[in-house]
């Protein structure tokens, strides 16, 4: 349930942030690197712009962190777990087969203020540690253009608009979940006609660190509460619908399809029965 809540809030945040690449203040708790040692900072390099947000708590996987940070994720239709689009980019990819090696979302890990390292696991398999940084970069596998944000010393005050902080700690998985697919560690082998924005190294605007004051990296945050911080679990706002898939109109489609299948199958059964008799 909690994951559903975070995803709903993530979708709501994505709806607010979808238009501009970086709108500081729209969803204040997430539109910057995490403070303290809790939460996973997610850096997404869109090529033309870079977005840095914070996934609160301890997300169970890189994919969950990406979604909890407010990015909308669309997976490859034939390869569940393989990230195809983040916040609708790239729009040119139909997301049916795995993207080509020249235009996919490469997945990186880093420590705060460290350097990027290409993930050897898929995003659905890797369990990021709280306080670490996850990087996503579109292109042919190059690291994100901006360095992992450094550690912050001053704990920022949590936003005042938070209605009701949930005290439940994240149900963190105890073990790492290794698995090959996803995240872009697989080379796509499908011929694709055109892929826009194939160049990953655009001019990345490093303005994302506007809100998080980069302090000296040696200072340890004293206020990191060990009792499982509630995180920035903003309760769902006006129930923004999650991604609007072309999923049919519900029960009517199911009944119609089922009736059609049953009709043809009963025809087959009748033909077989008539032959036997």
């Amino acid at each position: 349930m909690r994951r559903l809540v975070t995803r709903l809030s993530a979708a709501a945040a994505a709806a607010g942030l979808a238009t501009a690449g970086l709108v500081a203040g729209a969803v204040p708790a997430q539109a910057a690197a995490c403070t303290g040692t809790s939460g996973v900072t997610v850096v997404v390099d869109f090529g033309s712009s870079t977005s840095i947000r914070c996934a609160p708590g301890d997300p169970s996987s890189g994919l969950a962190a990406l979604q909890a940070a407010g990015f909308s994720v669309k997976q490859v239709q034939r390869q569940p777990g393989f990230v195809c689009r983040i916040d609708g980019a790239p729009a040119s990819d139909p997301c049916v087969n795995t993207p080509p090696t020249s235009a996919y979302w490469a997945y990186f890990h880093a420590a705060r203020g460290g350097s990027w390292s290409y993930s050897s696991l898929g995003a659905a398999s890797y369990d990021p540690k709280p306080g670490s940084v996850e990087g996503w970069s579109f292109g042919s596998g190059a690291a994100p253009g901006s360095a992992p944000p450094a550690k912050t010393s001053t704990p920022r005050s949590t936003p005042t608009t938070k209605p009701k902080p949930k005290p439940t700690p994240a149900p963190s998985k105890p073990t790492a979940r290794p698995k090959p697919t996803g995240g872009g560690s697989t080379a796509g082998s499908t011929p694709r006609g055109t892929t826009s924005a194939a160049a990953p190294t655009g001019s990345t605007a490093p303005s994302a660190s506007a809100t998080a004051s980069p302090g000296p990296s040696s200072t340890v945050d004293p206020t990191a509460s060990p009792s499982g911080t509630p995180g920035d679990d903003s309760t769902p706002l006006a129930a923004a619908p999650t991604s609007t898939e072309a999923g049919g109109s519900g029960a009517g489609t199911l009944v119609a399809g089922g009736a059609l299948v049953a009709l043809v199958a009963s025809g087959a059964g009748f033909a077989a029965w008539r032959r036997r008799s």
Partner: peptide
């Protein structure tokens, strides 16, 4: 292309 896929994320009716 979405009409050919089983909607899994989120779960839905095909």
């Amino acid at each position: 292309p979405d009409a050919l896929a089983m909607p899994l994320e989120p779960l839905g009716v095909p």
